[in-house]
Amino acid sequence: MWMRNSSKQIAKDRLRNVLVHDRADTSPDFMSNLRDDLMRVVSEYMEVGQSGADFQLQSVDDHVALIANIPVKQVRRGRRPGNN
């Protein structure tokens, strides 16, 4: 019905992006809980450097990206999901 770049659409996109940051920033444990959960899952597949890991929400072009930088020490051989 309306164009992709109508001011209404722009408002919606900007609002969504700003709320991604707001909600993550204003909830005190959000990033650290996310970090802990992700690290737990990732370490099932590979041995990672817990201390050097870095997680950030970053605005990239027109969206927000979760950027994770996790030092990998070693990949666990033959590791498949659900294989404990």
Partner: peptide
């Protein structure tokens, strides 16, 4: 304004 795409609609707002 909503109809011509220049204001967020009620649906847009409750969705967000």
């Amino acid at each position: 304004m909503v109809r011509r795409g220049d204001m967020m609609s009620v649906e847009d707002i409750i969705d967000i």
